[in-house]
Design a protein around this nucleic acid. Structure first.
Lengths: 126, 126
DNA sequence: AGGCTAGGTTTCCGATAGGAACCAGCAGGT
DNA sequence: ACCTGCTGGTTCCTATCGGAAACCTAGCCT
């Protein structure tokens, strides 16, 4: 008895699936979060996030831009300066992301704990 | 001056990064959502979700189990029956996920719209 | 002139995702 | 008795992705 109605879930048919797949990659959420406090430059994001390569940053930013979540602002200066900022649409994603981070802060320990206790001997008789 | 303090973001150092990376893959969120209404069997999840392969389902379920978010229940019947259900810890993730789905329901159209309008001629007024 | 800066792209390679096919184990049909 | 089928899971193979590092552009400084 899976009480999922046709409009209820993002299972197989609805637009929610699309949106979840939008943000369901390693860096999207982190990048959006990095932009949540205002415009940030490419290089700043690199250092802020830590661990992301230029390539993946650019790629993630481009996709977010294409989806209307962020805006790119390239100043015709030298050395070049490029800032990224959330669009109003992108800003609406910050709340759900904050919920995720809050969850992580509250339960991250429990998850690590489970991971630690997790590798049970499993009683594989051979 | 990005106003991120050391305990403020999941940028580079904190546990939130770990947690975000936990759920930041194509299927985790969908699977968790699929389990949000109670125990579901492996095969039911396959049909419910639609588009996931057995392998990825199993893999996702195993990871979620290892992280303490779901519990596996294998009945010694024939044909085999295996049910998965959220643990209390896993259940706490449903709220944030619901926020995401709500966001998607509300803004999915806007995203698709941006994607459609996105490929702009780039208006290089040079 | 050569090097610096800063954003971006390209190249290469290892890791991963994903589908299809196969396996296990028993019940039931023929 | 044998073969098939149901269900969950695993293995094999390939296409794609992710990441490191090198290269590019372009103007300013020395």
């Amino acid at each position: 008895m899976s009480g999922f109605g046709p409009g209820d879930a993002f299972l197989a048919d609805c637009p929610a699936r699309l949106a979840v797949e939008l943000i369901a990659d390693k860096w999207t959420v982190v990048v959006l979060y990095g932009l949540s406090q205002g415009p940030v430059r490419h290089g700043e994001l690199i250092e802020l996030i830590g661990g992301i390569s230029r390539k993946m940053l650019t790629q993630t930013l481009r996709r977010l831009e294409a989806h209307g979540l962020i805006r790119r602002h390239a100043y015709a200066e030298v050395p070049p300066r490029v800032e990224y900022e959330l669009t109003p649409l992108g800003a609406t994603l910050i709340d759900p992301i904050h919920m995720l981070t809050e969850w992580a802060r509250a339960n991250g320990d429990a998850v690590l704990d489970a991971l630690d206790a997790g590798p049970e001997p499993v009683a594989h008789s051979d």
